[in-house]
Every structure is written in C-alpha cells, then in structure tokens.
Design a protein around this nucleic acid. Structure first.
Lengths: 344, 344
DNA sequence: CTGAAAGCGCTTACAG
DNA sequence: CTGAAAGCGCTTACAG
C-alpha cells in the first residue's frame, strides 16, 4: 500500500517510548558498554516498533559514521571491475552501508582531483575500497593522512588489507605456457592505455612476462610490448598497430581476456587467426573465453571483491584494536583451450 | 606532497575571511537571491582560497541536500548496466554529486527491502536514477510518496523523466528481419530469469515480438518463449533447454546480445551453429557482436545513461518550477551480420 | 540586501 | 549504569 509520508522516527521518539534518555538510547543502539540489559532490551523494542533508523546526516555531523563506503575503480565497465564492484556492493549492503561508486574513467585528471581532496571524501564515507589503483607516493601519503580506513583488491605491498592474485606469477605461468609450446618470439598486449593512469595489475603482469623470458635467456623486444589497456577496443587497436607497424610475433600474451578478444578481432580483420598465425593467451577466464576457445589463466573475481570488502568492514568494526594489515593471495589456474598451440 | 591533516574549512571560516555572516555566506554559496554582487564575489573568493566545501552531513541535517544521487540497477555486471552506470556516474560527478550505487542483484528480496524503506533512502540521497526497473503499483506509489526526484532509463509511461529506446519497435524490427528472411517458426529468448524481478525492457521486447508475428498472422508457440535473463549464462541455459526439451525453431530473437552469445555457446555445445541450423538476432550491438558475426539492433547505451542523469540534475536545479515529465526515445538500427540468413 | 537565533538529529565528554 | 548539556556545521524563517 502507498506508504503515508509520515516523518521518520527520531531518537527522541525512541527515548520517549522506551522511557530513557536519548543518550542512553544512542549508546544502546550502537551496542556501546555501560547499558543495562534491561535498558538495552527496552531500547531495542522501541526502536523496532518505530522502525527507527538513525539519521546518517545527524550521526555523521555529531562525529559518528556516514554509513557509506566508497569503491574506487579505474573504470566501472571492464569485466573484472563490474564484477568486483557488484560483489563488494553486496557485502557493503548486507552490512548496512551504502556504496559510493567512484570511477576514474581511465582519466588521470579524475584521479588527481579525487586524491587532491581526500579530506572531502573522508567527510562523506567511512572507508575506501581501492580496485587496482596505481598510487603515486604523494597519493599514498595523502591517503594515510586522511585517516580513512582502506582495503584493496590487486594492490600488493601496501599498508592496508589487500586481496588479489599473484599477477607476476600468473603472467609468468601464462608466458611459460607459450614458451613451453616452442614459441620464443613473444609479444605482450598489456599495460595501461596511453595517457591513462597505470593499473598496478598491468605492470606486475608485464614483470612476470619479462621474468619468464629472462629465465629462458630470452630478452623482450621493445617493439613487441604494446600498451593495450584492458578493453576489447584497446586490444584491437594494439594488435592492429602491432601487425601493421611492428611485426608479427609467434605468440602473444594478452594482459586480460578482453584485450585478447580485441586482438582476435584485429586478427580476423587482417585475415589472420589464432592459433594458425599466432598463439594467444589471456588472463581472467571471461564467460566468452570458452566460446572463443581462448587459452587463459582463470582468476576468481567476485571472491576478490567480496573478500576485500569484508576485510574493510571488519576493520571498521574493531577500529582502535591493533590489527596489522593482512595480504591474501587467491589462486589462478591455467585453462588450456585452442588459441595456443605448438610452434610449427 | 603529503597533505597535512588540517581540519576542513567550515562556513565559519569563510564568513570570517569574507567579513560576512555565515548566513549570507550560505546564501551566496548556493547562489540564492538577495545577495549583493559584492558579497557574492567576496564569498566566492574566500571559499576558493580556503578550498571550502560544505559538509554534506551538516547541510543535509539542516534541511539542505545530501549531495548524493542513487543509481538503482537490476544488476551492475550486465553489459548495458555497467555502461549506463558509468555514464551516469560521470554526469553526477561533474555536477558535484556522489553516486550511490544500488544493485538489485536480480533478487526480488533486495528490491522489496529497498522499496520498503524509501524514507530511509530519501534521507541519504537527493534523487534517484532508475535503470530498467519493473515497478509494482505499490512501489510506484511509495516512490511518489517519498518525494524523491526520479529519472529513469528504459521505463515508459512513467510520471517522471525517462529516456530509452522504443523496445517494442526494436523487437518488432528484429522479428520482422527474421520473418523477412522466410522464417516463421520463431523462438524468443528474453524476459527475466525465473524468480528474478522482471525488467520492463524484457516484457516490451516480448510484446514487439508477438506483435510482429501477429501482423503476419502467425501465433507465438508458448513452447518457444524462454525466460533467459540478460546474461550470457542465462542465454546458454535457455538455449540448451529449448533444444533439448522443447524443439528447435528456425530462427531466434534474443532479447539482448549477451543472451545471444549464450545461445551461440549452447549451439556449439550441441554441435550446432548459426546461421546453419538456426538464424539468430540480438539487441545491443555489444563490442563482441561484430567479431561473432551477430546480427543485432544497435542502441546507444552511454547516451541513455548520461541523458537521463542530466535530466535528473536539471530537475534538481529547478525544483519548484513547473516542469512536466519528459520522455525521450533514442534510435536503434538494424545491423545485419551473418548469424541470420534466408530460410532454405 | 544582511544578520542573530533557533534548530536539524545525533554523539560525546562530563556529572551524577 | 544513566542523564543534562554542549556542539557538530549547516539552513531556515524572522527581523532589521
């Protein structure tokens, strides 16, 4: 039925109904110490009866929490981020937090502006979940200075809770798969798009690629290192550029599946295909990868977002207690399909 | 450089620096009438010098705005929604609003809970952007009762600003394309997933499909109407079910490209393919559709999200003024590729 | 056009 | 364990 537009119950109403002061009510509601069981029960009853929910604005203003948590992502449309965001949002919602979505839209200027006013952000949210954001030293410092609780996905060696995969190792495994098939002339489609803020994940994967080559006494040809971004379009552009203006390698490591999809599109455009003309491997195990026969390294996505979100909330719940930052590494797995094959 | 943890400037600081009362400052900052040009300038200067930004909590509590806008989406991971969300978020951010992302995660319970406490929501945001949400009568009433300004994408005949495509017409065009190729035994993979809240878009597309058939004196076979949801997985499941437990039609209209992708996957699984064994058409023109040769109806996505977001903001800016709800229909276009062909 | 005052609904010391 | 009081930083009538 259409709910009447009755004004919300305030803490005053709960106090009146329970016969206690608003101060005691406030404490009881937040499960603070020094509240008798009896008082606690009366307050809970009254609050339930009134459907009371504290005003986030008032609470915030008086020094309490905002009831909101921010998720900062390089972009919200990429496969990985859309899923991580939704998983984290679910965790936040289940804990009663609103989630404020901030997409950097792959623009350095947006990141600059955001980190230039962290004080403003800290006024509007209780904590921040960072998804694969490459931070400069000053930005790290600013974040620390803001006092905002932080957790992240895909960012290692960082002074807060993080969960991710071992990107370098995953990239190394992927590259080794290529090397194991007899390919030694390898290209990498990874890194950020030109002009976009770098994504940590990308540089770690590049490192894994380089390491695998080095371990086989191979050097990476700078001509075969393409900044592709993690989008289908980025992959397509980079692949086209590679074939038309550099040279065709024998195999390609794409930094993520979407980049690989784009590369497949470019190949088709040029009348080529994988694995016939070139072997190609990605990272992600996107739903389409099976269909396209893309060999890839699978990684859990929603798990990473949800896990990190939970870490942030736990930290919020016991702020004050000593609690050294933790780091969690989730597993990846090679999924062989038919976009890679032995060098002929 | 690491910014010192200085407390934020308050309206008091601006008042002191500009030599005016906080009351005048408040008015000047919000560009309210009755402020002399001189005062306006002094306040603007002082605010800029101090990097002042009103406390959203205080502002909200005192009866002002929250500075936040909500985006409510059936899910945040689907291709369409991820893009619409990011486009709207950009518009909101550029106007100085935080965006609160609320994903229904395809769960009716989440929607129920949300609409059961719209009073709570209206306390936390200044307005709401609805993306293809199917609302019940009570929910519509509750929304109206909440007093929240609303705008939407993909929802027609609604008492607020909306922008969308003509889903029925797009579906009709798609279906006619199939009929024009000589197919008359058509299946549709659309609608919501079983148990999920229905998406308006889906039922409108179903209607367009039915209408096209009716216009050709054909009736729809209930056995060939599958609820597939708008995900790759949903399309795969529905297509498998269709072939294994119903029967193979001569052509298929998929409610969106992702559903079509899933159908293509299912076909491959069964040793079949399009257009050889069945013609298939989608709606969206997803980046992968070109690669997969999927015939589809293209629609502008980011445009819809951004347009609707702008309408919401405009309405917020001139609340009070008479302003009848507007409805905007964006164009779709048939993109013929090779997943459809003439019936043999 | 401008300002003093009250109040929004909470939380936080500080007394009991 | 509980309550009276002050205050968080704004906005809104209400006087000037």
């Amino acid at each position: 039925m259409p709910q009447a537009k009755t004004p919300r119950a305030t803490i005053q109403d709960v106090a009146a109904l329970s016969g206690l002061s608003i101060c005691t009510v406030s404490r009881a509601l937040r499960h603070l110490p020094n509240v008798s069981e009896q008082a606690q029960a009366r307050v809970s009853d009254a609050a339930a009866k009134l459907g009371y929910r504290a005003s986030s604005a008032a609470s915030r203003l008086a020094g309490g929490s905002t009831g909101s948590l921010a998720i900062i992502a390089p972009t919200a449309t990429a496969w990985f981020f859309a899923r991580a965001v939704e998983a984290a949002e679910e965790v936040f919602a289940d804990s009663g937090y609103d989630t404020v979505l901030i997409s950097l839209r792959n623009q350095p200027s947006v990141q600059r502006k955001l980190f230039g006013d962290l004080a403003g952000l800290s006024q509007r949210v209780d904590g921040v979940l960072l998804l694969n954001i490459a931070l400069s030293e000053p930005e790290m410092a600013a974040l620390a200075g803001s006092g905002l609780p932080v957790a992240s996905v895909g960012m290692h060696d960082v002074p807060w809770d993080n969960v991710g995969i071992d990107n370098e190792e995953a990239a190394r495994t992927a590259t080794n798969h290529l090397l194991g098939l007899g390919h030694w002339d390898l290209a990498i489609l990874a890194g950020s798009e030109t002009g976009a803020p770098s994504v940590v994940t990308a540089s770690e994967r590049l490192r894994g690629f380089e390491r695998a080559l080095a371990e086989h006494d191979l050097t990476v040809d700078p001509d075969l290192v393409m900044a592709a971004g993690s989008s289908i379009e980025g992959g397509r552009l980079a692949m086209t550029e590679l074939v038309e203006n550099r040279r065709m390698p024998s195999a390609i490591f794409a930094g993520c599946d979407e980049t690989a999809f784009g590369a497949l599109m470019a190949l088709r455009d040029l009348g080529l295909s994988a694995p016939k003309n070139v072997s190609i491997i990605g990272i992600d195990d996107h739903q389409m990868s099976w269909y396209l026969g893309l060999t890839t390294m699978s990684q859990p996505v929603a798990d990473q977002g949800a896990f990190a979100a939970n870490l942030l909330i736990e930290r919020l719940h016991r702020s004050g207690l000593p609690n050294p930052p933790s780091s969690h590494v989730l597993d990846t797995k090679l999924v062989e399909r038919k976009s890679t094959r032995r060098r002929r």
